[in-house]
Write a protein that binds this DNA or RNA. Structure first.
Length: 134
RNA sequence: UGAACUGCAACGGCGGCCGCUUUGCUUUGCAAAGAGGAAAGUCCGGACUCCACAGGGCAGGAAGUCCUUCUUCAAGAAGGAUGUCGCGGGGGCAACCCCGCGGGAAGGAAAGCGCAACAGAGAACAGACCGCCGACCGUUUUCGGACGGCCGGCAAGGGUGAAACGGCGGUGUAAGAGACCACCGGGCUCCGGAGCGAUCCGGGCCGCAUGGCAAGCCCCUUCCGGAGCAAGGCCAAAUAGGGAACGAUGCCGUUGCCCGCGGCGUUACCAGUUCCGGGUUCUGGCCGCUUAGACAGAUGGUCGCCCCCGCGGAAACGCGGAGACAGAAUCCGGCUUAUGUUGCAGUUCGCUUU
RNA sequence: GGGCGUAUAGCUCAGUUGGUUAGAGCGCCACGUUGACAUCGUGGAGGUCGUAGAUUCGAGUUCUACUACGCCCA
């Protein structure tokens, strides 16, 4: 597995209002200085077992659309680069004000640390693959 | 040559790797296209769509000097002109005049209504506080007059105010006053001339009687039917089958209101029209929808080089930093607001040289 | 995206056709009353009227632009 050679499709995004409401109600919250993450393990009866993500970046966080767009794009890019080492689940990321102005590497660092805290990274289970690739 | 301000124009360039949206094709991929001057605020106008008509009146809204051009329903933009206001300079005792530069929601104040606090005697065809003058009475007297009271005349001086009912000099008078005169200013539905026109110039008349505010009401001229892509059209699914109004001098729609116009039918259940409620939902899909065209929302991430700045260095170069304001959602045009760097042009100021 | 509305004391609101010093209730502070508290009484503090510009002699009020907050739509 090599990081940086993956694509994202529409199926990997949370698209309906039901998905967002379910995550807001039943998701497990993990807080970070950069963002709040709501995670929920994949539905057992779902045969696809994909990792799906969503972002909430409302006008309340920042009035400038440019700043909000950059936050969204950085998070999307981080998911694209790191999706192979994340277990199948639904992730909802809500950026916080401290994240505005950060670089992509910093966002990736914070997101992986938060997901590792939640026990959703594949690092331990696939340590041999990681070492073999590196 | 430097600084400040104003206006206009362009916005980082190239390449590697990974990736996103749409379209097309010979479909495990390839090719093409992919944010702005403000995309913003939503302040205006138009296109477009619907409301079975768009007709009339009232209300409401927008614009407002003149000419030309662009545009053209209307707004709006550019250039020039006129008047006004502000600043600077000059003239004049002053009122005011002349010249230069600059500003813009620049119609009408003798159609009418309204307002002007406080101060001040008086604030709109006003006004006698301090004053000036005269007659009479009283006291006093150095016989010039002074003081007090009362009656009357006077808008010249002081003082108040944002604004005090033309300015200045003279004649005149008891004192004064456009009461009268010269000059200046002002007004006129007067006359003549110039100009397409706003308007200007000259003459005459008016002694000056009606000054300010219309981003107060209002009047005049021109224009505007209403709502807006969540407009609207087609298809599908689901829920409910509940409540209210309506029986033609009635209800609903059409514009806020009226007229007018259109729809609804008579057996009171059913059915119908409209409204409310309920259900579904980022409306379920497609069209509208775009040589960018999304519908959890694409136009990105990272690396290298060249541009810009700072430091070190003779240089090559090394290190660090910065590239503003800001992201389409039916489209187009205008206005306003946010803005860094570079280039060009204009104005003002400083320095140097001739 | 489109169409509207509001902003005045810590809170909820008044403020007339522009006019002197912007008011009311609750709250707050001090004093009195009480052994102490509540209640009550007296007094007081607290306002760049959301921001800036314009009109005017003079803007909470009129006009323009901006900011913040809120409501509606099929």
């Amino acid at each position: 597995m090599e990081i940086g050679r993956s694509s994202l499709r529409k199926q990997e995004k949370l698209r309906t209002r039901k998905d967002f409401e379910a995550l807001k109600e039943h998701g497990k919250a993990c807080r970070d200085p950069f963002f709040t993450v709501l995670v929920r393990a994949a539905v057992p009866d779902d045969p696809v077992q994909t990792t799906r993500y969503g972002i909430i970046c409302s006008r309340k966080l920042h009035h400038s659309a440019v700043v909000r767009n950059r936050a969204r794009r950085l998070i999307t890019e981080t998911f694209r680069l790191c999706k192979e080492i994340i277990l199948p689940c639904s992730i909802l990321v809500i950026p916080r004000r401290a994240m505005f102005g950060a670089k992509q590497q910093e966002v990736q660092e914070h997101l992986l640390r938060t997901l590792k805290k939640a026990g959703l990274t594949r690092e331990k289970q696939t340590a041999d693959i990681q070492s073999a690739n590196s």
